[in-house]
Amino acid sequence: MATVHLDHLAGRRVFSEHGRSIGYIEEIVAERDGSDLVVIEFHVGIFAALERLSASTIGTALLDFFALRRREGLYRI
């Protein structure tokens, strides 16, 4: 299994299969697999950045008010 330093991936631009930019890696989701952590998702795009706000009560209220919590523009890769 390869070891990757996640700080080298966060903030990197992601491209579609057609070469268009779809955004930047905003969040990395990992699960424990024995003694390893395995990346299962990258969250990319403008709404991935807004998703980070949902960690707070105020952020969740803002996302709900503007109906942004489940909107297109969040890519899970």
Results as ranks from 00 to 15, higher is better:
residue 3 T to D: 05
residue 49 A to P: 08
residue 37 L to M: 11
residue 4 V to Q: 04
residue 72 E to W: 10
residue 26 E to H: 04
residue 69 R to Q: 13
residue 16 S to E: 03
residue 17 E to A: 11
residue 57 T to M: 01
residue 71 R to H: 14
residue 45 G to W: 01
residue 65 F to G: 09
residue 73 G to L: 00
residue 65 F to E: 07
residue 52 R to C: 11
residue 46 I to K: 12
residue 1 M to I: 08
residue 31 E to Y: 03
residue 6 L to G: 06
residue 12 R to E: 14
residue 47 F to A: 06
residue 37 L to A: 12
residue 38 V to R: 01
residue 12 R to N: 14
residue 53 L to D: 14
residue 50 L to N: 13
residue 10 A to P: 01
residue 67 A to K: 11
residue 29 V to H: 07
residue 14 V to F: 10
residue 71 R to T: 15
residue 17 E to N: 09
residue 52 R to P: 11
residue 18 H to Q: 12
residue 30 A to R: 01
residue 8 H to F: 04
residue 28 I to S: 04
residue 55 A to W: 09
residue 17 E to K: 09
residue 18 H to R: 05
residue 70 R to P: 01
residue 64 D to L: 12
residue 16 S to A: 10
residue 59 G to P: 05
residue 71 R to Y: 13
residue 75 Y to T: 08
residue 3 T to W: 07
residue 27 E to A: 07
residue 73 G to I: 03
residue 67 A to P: 03
residue 16 S to C: 03
residue 74 L to N: 01
residue 38 V to M: 02
residue 38 V to A: 02
residue 48 A to Y: 05
residue 9 L to A: 09
residue 1 M to F: 10
residue 3 T to Y: 11
residue 70 R to V: 13
residue 53 L to T: 14
residue 26 E to V: 01
residue 56 S to H: 15
residue 49 A to K: 13
residue 45 G to D: 03
residue 4 V to S: 03
residue 29 V to C: 04
residue 66 F to G: 13
residue 39 V to R: 00
residue 73 G to N: 00
residue 60 T to S: 14
residue 13 R to P: 08
residue 3 T to K: 04
residue 39 V to G: 00
residue 54 S to H: 07
residue 12 R to I: 13
residue 66 F to L: 09
residue 35 S to K: 02
residue 17 E to T: 14
residue 31 E to W: 02
residue 1 M to D: 09
residue 77 I to A: 00
residue 24 Y to I: 10
